[in-house]
Design a protein around this nucleic acid. Structure first.
Lengths: 236, 236
DNA sequence: CGATCTGTTTGCGATTGCGCAAAGTGACGC
DNA sequence: GCGTCACTTTGCGCAATCGCAAACAGATCG
């Protein structure tokens, strides 16, 4: 847990990010006064499921995985946090604790505020409140999308959708295709789609044989997005 | 579509509801000026999936079911709207259209505002903004709960959870047990839990034989909540 | 540079829950 | 009071996918 004292955050770093856009410069400056920048090395835990929700966060750089463990020990990946996302806003869910555990998938840079600031900041910045609400609303929309998929699609389509979404949100374009730019395991994908490691592995192997993807240890590249999309959404 | 002209809404009807609590009386009065009360008879449609999101709503009285249809025609029930809930707030999801269709399960009374008011109202009422955000946040929490269940639990547990949740949110206590106080079909429950009508029917029949519930046409009463809870969460 | 650890692949049998089919049954309208 | 419609029940075979088991392979570390 790197506590970085009172280090001012350069406003130019954030002023153009969607979340903070249209905020009055003075208000933004005031908000950043209360913020603490923190670095998390790959693998480090930002917060733990069940812990008292003492702070909320914004991801500047890197990737995080947020997952939950059920009572009987099964993991479910609830979301991947991308730069520009708010996370750990338990207050907005009216919860006293974090519902999941957030871990850095790569070295990451976050900004955090004491949770008590949430109310102040939201009530004091109508513009930010709107933006934050949309941030949360998008998350709701995503959750609904996943629910719809889980309810109606077989495993293969769900996995295809999940992989395509990952390449869209976290893809780096290479000559041979689009690579998911952070380490991700078959287990991760299984936890995102409600299936098992084994099934994901089998699917990816089959896809690789058909030339749709190229796999590797914690690596995945989509070499034929069109083909994958056809699996995800068989047109008519 | 009952358009009720400029009928003022009695502020005393809403001032004590959680969503509007702590708002300044003047601001609340102003907000209600813009609102239109509407009644929807059982079975009527409040808004349709894909339609231009022209208004957002608040349920005063009744019950609504919101469901989505997938491209291949399968229904998924996204939520049941209870009195005191906001719904149809597409703007907060940054969507131009309604993601689902809302139908009255019983005669219902709603208040609606033109969607353009959303921004005004949220930006102009910090207190309301917080409350609305929590309303949406709760919905996110619920979606995550369902995702977790869909990912890790077999059908029987999911259905048990769904039924228990319904009795908690919409249960009327009777001598013999807790009745779900609006008409609900096995198909509905199937669409809430990602399974089929047939499987739900089989489960309920089995439960009825064990004395846990009592079924009927569009009816369901839980007669042994403890027993059902044991199915939902087998302790250790 | 070998040992070890973590992540991956693959086979096979066991189940769960689905899909199809067909028969009941309560509610409502005429 | 009867017909119809919507909702429900139940049986049966099949397919998807899980669970277990075992072998394999990059990566990391001393």
């Amino acid at each position: 847990m790197v506590k970085a004292g009172r280090v001012a955050i350069d406003i130019s770093l954030v002023r153009n990010l969607p979340l903070f856009r249209q905020m009055e410069p003075a208000a933004l400056a005031r908000m950043m006064t209360r913020a603490t920048p923190q670095r998390f090395a790959k693998g480090a835990t930002v917060f733990e499921q069940g812990a008292d929700a003492a702070a909320f966060f914004f991801l500047l750089h890197g990737r995080l995985k947020v997952s939950q463990v059920t009572a009987d020990g099964q993991q479910v990946m609830m979301r991947v946090v991308h730069p520009g996302d708010l996370f750990g806003f338990a207050r907005a869910l009216a919860r006293p604790d974090y519902p999941g555990t957030a871990k850095a998938a790569v070295d990451s840079l976050v900004i955090s505020w004491p949770m008590a600031e949430w109310d102040t900041v939201v009530e004091g910045n109508p513009r930010l409140a709107m933006n934050a609400m949309q941030n949360i609303g998008q998350r709701l929309d995503e959750a609904h999308t996943r629910l719809r998929e889980m309810s109606t699609q077989e495993v293969e389509r769900r996995v295809a959708h999940a992989v395509l979404r990952l390449t869209q949100k976290a893809g780096s374009i290479e000559p041979a295709g689009t690579r998911i730019d952070f380490p991700i395991t078959r287990q991760d994908i299984a936890e995102m789609t409600g299936t098992t490691l084994h099934t994901v592995s089998r699917l990816l192997s089959a896809w690789e044989a058909r030339g749709l993807v190229e796999g590797g240890r914690q690596k995945l590249m989509v070499t034929d997005a069109e083909g994958l999309a056809r699996i995800a959404d068989p047109e008519d």
